[in-house]
């Protein structure tokens, strides 16, 4: 952030379609703090058409980035503009990150109708970044009609994406029968569309049976498409795009989309509140009173539970 432009002006420029301004706004969202809060308020007040947000998730190496790049190509052929937020993990030790999703998105990367932003998770668990939600709202306010949210490669339970996107695409590979077993409780429950990517490999039919078996018990499970793709060659990707468009329209028509967006508000509110609390808690622990409190517990003067009550009292009072 080298620009000293007031946020409102930056926001207006972003809304007028200036890429550099949008990029700065996303940095403001990532940095957090008072500016991000102000930006959030600007987004809330801006009258912009709702964007359609699509989560793309799956295990590391499943081909999420390549698939996302291929989807961008198909979307552009359909004359749709699309933005991508591609999330990669930050090192928990140093806070640094290598963000490599763009390497697979060359063709799309110079298209005016595409905006790609790499984002580090910055300590957030669950496959997303704290700033991803605000990032989506910023892109929406700046008029991007489709937003693809590519998560960190995830395992079984990091399914935060389900609360943050309108619709979730889960990317699997052939030969992942055991994986599906293991993931029954997590990934399998959040998918609106399954993709078997790298479908030129052996084991597609078995993987399809495993997926269909796992979703059969879900209400409406039969309506969940299972699509085979070879993302590196673009095969199956137009079908996937078609499925995304149709599923999104169906969710909208049934009222499910509205329900999900309501739920998203609750999830985002809770997550933001927790994050604010965590900051205050850290400060309260480090403050003189916090240190004294720990001493009192150590000397048997009071218990952990009483300590918690005192600590929380301090936080709320501040």
């Amino acid at each position: 952030m080298s620009s000293a432009a007031p946020l409102q002006e930056l926001f207006d420029r972003g809304r007028r379609g200036e890429r550099g301004a949008l990029a700065r706004l996303l940095s403001v969202a990532e940095a957090g703090g008072a500016q991000a809060a102000q930006l959030d308020a600007l987004c809330a007040a801006a009258a912009a058409p709702r964007a359609r947000s699509i989560g793309i998730t799956g295990a590391p190496g499943a081909g999420k980035s390549t698939l996302t790049a291929a989807l961008l190509g198909v979307a552009r052929n359909a004359d749709q503009r699309a933005a991508v937020l591609a999330i990669d993990p930050s090192s928990p030790l140093t806070g640094g990150a290598i963000l490599g999703d763009r390497v697979r998105m060359h063709q799309a990367a110079v298209d005016e109708g595409v905006f790609i932003r790499s984002m580090a998770s910055r300590g957030q668990q669950g496959g997303l970044a704290q700033a991803a939600s605000l990032g989506v709202r910023v892109l929406e306010a700046c008029g991007w009609p489709w937003i693809l949210l590519e998560t960190v490669g995830i395992g079984q339970v990091e399914v935060e994406i389900s609360g943050r996107a309108d619709l979730v695409v889960v990317v699997l590979n052939p030969g992942w029968g055991d994986e599906i077993q293991a993931n029954k409780a997590g990934l399998m429950e959040v998918a609106d569309i399954f993709v078997i990517n790298k479908a030129d490999r052996e084991g597609v039919a078995q993987t399809r049976r495993d997926i269909e078996g796992a979703i059969a018990a879900r209400p409406g499970g039969q309506q969940i498409p299972v699509i085979e793709t070879i993302a590196t060659r673009g095969e199956g990707v137009p079908e996937l795009w078609q499925a995304i468009v149709e599923r999104h329209a169906a969710l909208d028509a049934s009222g499910e989309l509205a329900v999900r967006r309501r739920a998203r508000i609750a999830a985002e509110l809770e997550s933001a509140a927790l994050s604010a609390l965590r900051g205050r808690l850290a400060a309260a622990m480090a403050a003189e009173e916090g240190v004294r409190l720990r001493e009192r517990i150590a000397s048997g003067d009071c218990g952990i539970h009483e300590g918690v009550a005192t600590l929380l009292g301090n936080i709320v009072r501040d």
Binding site: S91, T94, G96, A97, L99, R102, H106, S118, A120
Partner: peptide
């Protein structure tokens, strides 16, 4: 650079 705390965005070979 990552180990020094930077976020490094790789774009590969590009024009």
């Amino acid at each position: 650079l990552r180990d020094a705390g930077f976020e490094v965005i790789m774009v590969g070979m590009v024009t």
